[in-house]
């Protein structure tokens, strides 16, 4: 089974730097999945993406795109990849449509009008197609970067914070578009600091901190593993409750934190309080943000999954 992306023991030390920006990272992106690479500022996300696109040469380790080492046959791997860089590009000479035409040409596509127009309307840029980049707003520039990455219909899409500065409605549209691409078989590697979006969007995530992957897995699995369920029960009157999960009592409000795997019914039965005394139950599930914060604040390297 050939994977869209396999990274094995990737190490990157920049010139004039005394520490490794990426310290032996390994993970893979599977076919038609959205993989989120998450991590605090400076964790090494952009560096990893640069190694995939050959903008930066790995110090050690291998990066394979559809089974081919990017340092060996980059002409092949580059054709498979579309990339949206974190920094917006400001090319001054040409308008939006010209930029996309040149971009198509770089990928060997001479006539690509149809695709270009499709992308322009998909990314709400059609009416701005004759503007120069500097006449676009920040979010429009970002969308132009995305259109550029897609002119050649890449099988592996790398998105380095594609939604920074994009307004909420268009962000929503954009993520739907990414889902659409996934359903057509495109694999996506994305980085974002919007963890709520990552949770909704990503099939799997890898969490990286200080140049090392500290956790990789299915998004739901990670959330389940690293978060707790908070339960608040309001009783009709004060009751004696014996539970190892009880955290706090405020008047008739009882606050519990229970493990994810514990069935709720079992937990309530164990309280030994007649159910007719229960007025209200509120459950607050943990989310990716909680898991993320827990994972990146653990200092001792690898967190077992």
């Amino acid at each position: 089974m050939i994977l869209p992306l396999e990274i094995h023991n990737l190490v990157k030390r920049y010139k004039n730097s005394s520490v490794d920006a990426v310290k032996g990272v390994s993970f893979e992106v599977k076919g038609a999945e959205i993989f989120g690479l998450l991590g605090p500022n400076g964790a090494g996300k952009t560096t990893i993406i640069s190694a995939i696109t050959t903008l930066e040469k790995p110090t050690d380790g291998t990066v394979k795109v559809f089974g081919v080492d990017v340092t060996k046959d980059s002409m092949f791997t580059k054709k498979q990849i579309g990339v949206v860089h974190q920094e917006v590009i400001n090319s001054g000479f040409f308008d939006v449509e010209e930029i996309l035409e040149f971009q198509s040409g770089y990928y060997g596509l001479r006539k690509n009008k149809e695709r270009i127009h499709f992308l322009l309307s998909k990314l709400a840029l059609y009416e701005h197609r004759n503007k120069r980049v500097k006449q676009l707003s920040g979010g429009m520039k970002r969308r132009l970067m995305i259109a550029k990455a897609l002119v050649h219909n890449p099988k592996l899409l790398l998105l380095d914070e594609p939604t920074a500065g994009v307004d909420i409605r268009l962000r929503e549209d954009l993520w739907n578009f990414v889902r659409e691409l996934r359903s057509e078989g495109t694999s996506v590697l994305l980085t974002t600091h919007y963890l709520e979006e990552a949770e909704q969007l990503c099939d799997r995530v890898g969490i990286i901190n200080l140049g090392s992957v500290v956790c990789v897995g299915a998004t739901k699995e990670i959330v389940r593993q690293y978060t707790l369920r908070k339960v608040r029960i309001v009783f009709a009157e004060q009751v004696p409750v014996q539970s190892p999960y009880l955290m706090e009592v405020i008047g008739k409000d009882y606050f519990f934190v229970i493990p994810q795997e514990k069935p709720l019914g079992e937990f309530i039965n164990e309280l030994g309080v007649p159910t007719q005394l229960v007025r209200d139950i509120q459950i607050e599930e943990g989310d990716l943000e909680e898991a993320f914060l827990k994972i990146v604040s653990q200092k001792d390297g690898q967190v077992p999954l």
């Binding site: 696109t53 980059s74 054709k79 860089h85 590009i89 400001n90 001054g92 770089y106 990928y107």
Partner: peptide, 18 residues
């Protein structure tokens, strides 16, 4: 140099051109 300045020189490195 102007491509370096605007950042689109990176496009050439990323694209499959020799």
């Amino acid at each position: 140099v102007s491509s370096k300045f605007s950042g689109d020189l990176e496009d050439l490195r990323v694209a499959p051109v020799t």
